Amino acid sequence: MRNLIMWNVITLDGYFEGQSNWDLSFHGLVWGKELEELSLSQLRSADMLVFGANTYQGMADYWTKATEEEGEVAKYMNQLPKLVCSTTLSKAEWNQSRITKDAVSEISKLKTEGNGDMYVFGSGQLSISLMKAGLFDEFRLCIAPTFLGKGKKLFPEGIPNQTLKLVQTNPLTTGGVVLRYVPERKT
């Protein structure tokens, strides 16, 4: 059975994007050899990447033009199968991409069909829908040591009340901290 994992870099005050689309400048505060190795480890365990429409378009634009500096990360980003959850997109041309209009139903089905991990990167609106459906098996967050004060919150009001169990912390030499949480399932 596949695990659905959220992966995001957020600021200490909870923003995953600045005021303008694709304002991810705070990622530079935590990026380094340690986070690159973690990214590669995650990509090696993945058998699918999951995106909302806006994140898909931005990622496709970036990774299809990746330079040699992005190396092995770019290879995985371009080769792995991708599921685009969108009711508006009619085509997805990035290598090994397909679209679903019913994210909750499709991801529920896909979780039973494989053994690798499925990662949701960014994709704030999609993540809220998946949280409300109880589909995430793990939340992985890298906390960047900064306050933005404005931008797009990853966890806005209205998300379901859910208790999480901390399963791992990983402080980075850049000052960031990677946290791994799993939902506490009600028995």
Results as ranks from 00 to 15, higher is better:
P81L: 13
A92F: 09
M6L: 14
S20G: 08
T55V: 04
G114R: 04
C142D: 01
G58R: 06
M6G: 04
Q42R: 10
M131D: 05
G122I: 00
Q42E: 11
N3R: 14
G176R: 08
T67A: 13
A103S: 05
E69W: 10
I107L: 12
Q162C: 09
W22I: 00
N78Y: 00
P156L: 09
K65G: 10
Y119C: 00
K33Q: 07
L141S: 01
L29G: 06
L154G: 02
I128K: 11
N3Y: 09
T64P: 09
T173S: 15
L179I: 04
E68D: 15
G28C: 03
F139I: 05
L35Y: 11
A133C: 11
V167L: 09
V167S: 12
K65Y: 05
D137H: 05
W22K: 08
T100V: 14
G158P: 14
T187M: 12
G175F: 08
N170H: 09
G124N: 05
E70N: 09
G124W: 00
F121G: 02
A53Y: 02
W31F: 15
R2L: 04
E72I: 02
G58K: 03
W22M: 08
N95E: 13
D23E: 10
E34Y: 01
Q96D: 12
N78D: 01
L40D: 01
E106I: 02
H27E: 13
G124H: 00
P171S: 13
R98L: 09
G175M: 12
S97F: 15
G32W: 04
V104T: 05
F51R: 05
N54P: 01
I159C: 03
R98P: 05
